[in-house]
Design a binder for these strands. Structure first.
Lengths: 280, 280
DNA sequence: GAGTGGTCTAGACCACTCA
DNA sequence: GAGTGGTCTAGACCACTCA
């Protein structure tokens, strides 16, 4: 989360200490500065207080001090814990909420975002039916294989060629027709105990399963889209003839620290569906 | 910009007035409340102060009081103008900067965002070459036609069938090969004086031209993607054979007030290019 | 009524730009 | 050195939730 940069070291912190003459402890702030310095190797670094707080909150999320779906301490409590003002905590929490790591509910508290509790079954899916209701899509598992990852897949996951992986295959369907066929590749190292039964227990909602069963929370995904002709097994899985134009989506899913943990290729029949995107 | 909602009317504003007993004018705040009330028809409305300020700033952008590329008044000046604190102005400006209507530069000022000054030639384009440098793409104009808008296009632009429109056709190319063929439809009502020469004077950078020549600033776009087989003229324009799989992008471009002002269909050859997307 | 997040203020000082 | 946006504080009160 913490961006490494070329921030100049200056006296701001020493001066910062002198703001407060009411005898309150300032050790925590000093410690934060030291943490940040060791975090950024190449040269001295400066980060505003609220980013340091943001980093500390993220650490607590990664370590599991606060788990998905649970509430984190109130802003006042966090302000005390880190010895900063509530406004500074707010700014840190706001950025984490913008990144969808946290969810705020006025009057109730701030919660760790969770794929299990979100109403959307497929949080990052941009495929929509051309007409009809928003979420009629459901997933059905085809099979699960233990494989050796090829060079390209292994590299994309930060592993070496031949590392053990899982290959999950499934269909996305609106009703009878299959809208998409998907191949998902995962490193066995992080998803040891995957099986067909555990996937079906989670209704084939993979991100929710990663989180609940393996403690791996997906934060964002990156996709590359191409148009390609259907061939062989893919064509038959989607019940289209060879040469039929498909939308092929290559997705990499990332967890904390921008670490890639899942590869996914989706072959979509866009005869009655489309991929929706809004660009700011 | 202003979201209509079911905010409860309460006494917050009356109490708010009593915060300040230093004799400063509060008429402007009161006027703001009245403006907001008339803006939202269905029932009484309440919006926090910073959103009301945001709305007033947006009005000044729409009216052209501050033009693209120019700086707007400093936060202190705006705070005086609206009789609120600098923090409240900051919050309004922050939201507008997040929406990319404004751009902040520390030490220099806050500027109205402009497509003419942005370094990216195609601000909303997600097509990238699979390998090679980031921005080798360039556009070349094919032709410009004056047409009657068909029912569907007219409806998408909020016009009636048969309304006058422009049809602009162009190619996007990396080097020799054409990566995409595009058809752009515009209402004549808002783009009266379009011609080949004016487009070429702007290097075929359309959004920049809309802004500079017609005062229409595009704020965001919505896209629907499908895979489709190349046919007839499109195939020949892209030098591919009939049946070649193309990525077809239907885009609607919006200006202030979420008003659609441009339709665009792009046919992309994704043999050596892809559509990139990051989802949070 | 107590506790949560949300808004707003006034004031201080920092980082950066430019003349 | 003056002016800009950026950070941080302390304190007040509002909107909302829940018991």
């Amino acid at each position: 989360m913490l961006k490494k940069g070329s921030f100049r070291v200056n006296n701001s912190y020493i001066r910062h200490k002198t703001y407060h003459t009411d005898g309150r402890c300032r050790f925590i702030s000093l410690r934060i500065v030291r943490v940040m310095k060791t975090q950024t190797e190449n040269g001295p670094a400066y980060q505003p207080l609220y980013r340091q707080i943001k980093y500390l909150i993220t650490e607590s999320l990664v370590s599991g001090e606060w788990r998905p779906g649970e509430s984190i301490p109130s802003e006042v409590e966090l302000a005390n814990r880190y010895s900063v003002s509530q406004g500074t905590v707010r700014k840190a929490v706001t950025e984490l909420a913008d990144q969808k790591l946290l969810v705020r509910h006025q009057g109730k508290g701030t919660f760790v975002a969770s794929h299990s509790e979100e109403r959307t079954k497929f949080p990052f899916l941009r495929i929509r039916p051309d007409r009809g209701d928003v979420e009629s899509l459901s997933a059905s598992l085809l099979d699960v294989w233990r494989i050796k990852l090829d060079k390209e897949s292994a590299a994309a996951l930060g592993l070496t060629e031949g590392a053990s992986g899982w290959l999950i295959r499934r269909l996305l369907s609106p009703a009878g027709e299959a809208a998409a066929y998907e191949e998902i590749r995962l490193p066995v190292s992080q998803f040891e105990a995957i099986s067909e039964s555990i996937i079906e227990k989670h209704d084939c909602m993979l991100y929710s399963m990663y989180e609940a069963a393996f403690g791996v929370r997906i934060l964002f995904v990156e996709e590359r889209l191409k148009a390609q002709q259907a061939e062989g097994e893919v064509a038959s899985k989607l019940s289209v003839s060879a040469g039929f134009p498909l939308l092929v989506i290559d997705r990499v899913s990332y967890t904390y620290g921008e670490r890639p943990v899942e590869l996914r290729r989706s072959y979509c029949n866009t005869a009655e569906h489309h991929y929706r995107n809004r660009i700011l």
